[in-house]
Each structure stands twice: as C-alpha cells, then as structure tokens.
Amino acid sequence: MKYERIKEVLERLNLNSITRPKEFEGCIFSILALLDDITPNPYLKMRRLYSDASFSRGANVQSIGNKANEIAGELNIHLTKDRETVRDYILKPMYDLGILRKGYLVSDNEYENFQTDIVLDYHHYKSGNNFYVLTESFIKLLQCCEEDLNKMIKSWVRTSRAKELQIRKEANKIKYGNLHSQLIDASISIFVPKYLPGLEVIYVDNADGDRIGEEYKEKMVEANLELGLEDRFPDVILRHPETDYYWFIDAVEHDGEFDITRVEDIKKSFKRKGKRVLGFTTVYRDWKTAYSRQSTYGNLAPTTTMWIMEDAGKVYQVNSVERPCFSYYMKVKAKNTKK
C-alpha cells in the first residue's frame, strides 16, 4: 500500500488535526507496518494458531514502533522509538478514530478463564499480549476506488470521534475579520448548528455604531424583545421560536465571560420582560486563552457551558459544589417534581 494513499486517507479523516507532523508520519508508517503480510508475526502463539500469521495479524506497541522505524529507515526517515509516545500519540489517536482495533492474545495458562485464544476489543492491564490490528473497514477505505472513497469518508465522519474532528476542521477554517468577530462568526456558523439545533440567531453585537443591526431588528420585533441601556448585551442572543426560550453567547478575547453576576443580571432582565432563559455559553479561541483566563479568575458561572474554537468538537459544562453534575441534577429534579 503506497505511502501517499495512506497519507491522503488519514488527512481526509482529519487525523492530522490532532497529531503533530512527526507523529502523523508515525501513524502512516505504523499502518504500513500493520499491512505487512510477509514478515512473520512477532507472537509465537499467533504463528502457532495461524499458518499464515504475518505482522498484519496484529502486534504490540513495541513491535509496531520497531517495524514502523524499520520501514521509515529505508526512506532515511527517523521516527520516535519511545514506547509511550508510540502508544499515546500515534496508536491511540488511530484507535479513537476507528482505524485500529484492540486485541488480546490469551496465554496457555489463561485459556480456562477466557475459553478462546484471542479476545478482540480488549486489552489486559499492562500485558505484553495486548496487540493492535487494522480494522477491516479501514483496510476497505484504503483499497476502494476514488468514487467510493468519497462516500465511505462521509459515512466514516458520522462516527462520534470523526465527527468531532470534522467540526474542529471547520472551525479552524474561519480566518477572517478581527479576532473578536472571528470568534462570533465561529459561534454562529459552527457552534449553534452543531450543538443548539432549533435555536435561531436574533441578535449579534458584532459591529460599531447601532448595537442592533438592521438584519436583526425584525427578528427582535417578532420575538417581542427590546433591549435598553439598563440591560446586559451579550455577543449573540438565540431564541427557540416554539417555546420562546433564550440562549446567550459571549466570545471572549480579553474579558467578558458569563460569570455569576453577568448570568444573574441577564436572568433578572429577561424575567422582567416575561422571557425564559435556557442557557449560556462562553467561547474562547484556544486552550491557551481559556487557561490564561480561568487559571487567573476561575469566574465561569455554574451551569453555563464553555466552547473552545480550536477544539470545536466538544462542549464543556461548568459544575459546582452545589450542583456537582448539573445535567444529572436536573433529571433527578424533574423526576421528583413529577412525583
């Protein structure tokens, strides 16, 4: 299997978005190693079980790392030989994405417990008999024609981890406007449709001059919502048209998170207007900004959420001592209310 083909498929699966260049190279050569159907399998028992037991039947972390280095060395490319790096930053991302499958080779003295020689989708703690093997679906991906590849990639991206990486890739494409505008644009074009489907944008504070742009004035009238000087102005207001519930987004470059005071002020303001509040999301550009702000101030209000543009495939919920797991708390509260 050619190097370029593997590289193309991995890039289209967005694996390069979560691995550094050297580790991405390691992923390519690790796959080449696990496609090797000539070199005998490193496990003696595997060779006893299967007469044609080649390396492609599966190998442990160390063996994969050594074999990948051997293949890369023929091209004068040097990869890491550190076992933990191979395991955590090369093999694990591929396993998470569905490229690799775990397996455990049962030793003879364990057979009575397992009643089988090989256990797939299982690793025994710190065992040398743990191995990785390429999934059949990924091998088919490598072997299919270009027309089928497009369909199979789309299907693959529907899986949770691949979908998460696709969202991250979309977010990182947004590179226009000033920094604050960029965050707001990402919130509207990526965060809202992915995580808040059914809510529509009725207000965006993303321009100088009149805080309510012409394109949103009609939507504000339709929602019977009027904001005055006494009100807090978030960056984005969302509304669920059927229930008249509201969600708020603030994009933070330097300050302006949804802290307890800000959240309470907005809730009181909307209560006076006869409106119901659904939730709040603070948006950061990257983990560096989020860490800088929260390690210093730790001011995100409980029950709000946080979204980080560079890691766009996840949303983080803020819990507190009073409500250690807010979503669980709400479910229990709803259940008890029904009683």
Rank of each mutant, 00 (worst) to 15 (best):
R5Q: 13
S17K: 07
T19Q: 14
E23A: 09
D37Y: 09
N41T: 06
K45C: 11
K45H: 13
R48P: 09
D52M: 14
S54H: 13
S56W: 04
G65W: 05
N66G: 08
N66C: 08
A68G: 09
A72G: 12
A72M: 10
L79H: 01
K81W: 05
E84S: 07
R87E: 06
D88Y: 04
K102V: 03
S107M: 05
Y111G: 03
D117Y: 14
Y125E: 07
S127K: 07
S127M: 09
V133L: 15
E136M: 12
S137G: 13
S137Y: 04
F138M: 05
K140E: 12
C145A: 11
E146F: 10
K151A: 14
M152E: 13
K154P: 04
V157H: 02
V157Q: 02
R158E: 10
T159Y: 15
R161H: 11
A162Q: 06
L165S: 12
L165W: 03
I188G: 00
S189K: 15
Y195P: 00
L199R: 05
V201Y: 01
A207H: 14
E215G: 01
K217Y: 05
K217S: 03
E230K: 07
F233H: 09
F233Q: 07
D235G: 06
I237R: 01
F258Y: 07
F258W: 13
V263F: 01
I266M: 04
K268R: 10
F270H: 01
K275G: 11
L278H: 01
V283Q: 02
T289L: 10
S292K: 00
R293D: 12
R293I: 08
G298Q: 03
N299I: 08
L300I: 07
A312D: 01
Q317Y: 00
R323S: 04
V332Q: 04
K333A: 12
T337L: 06
K338D: 04
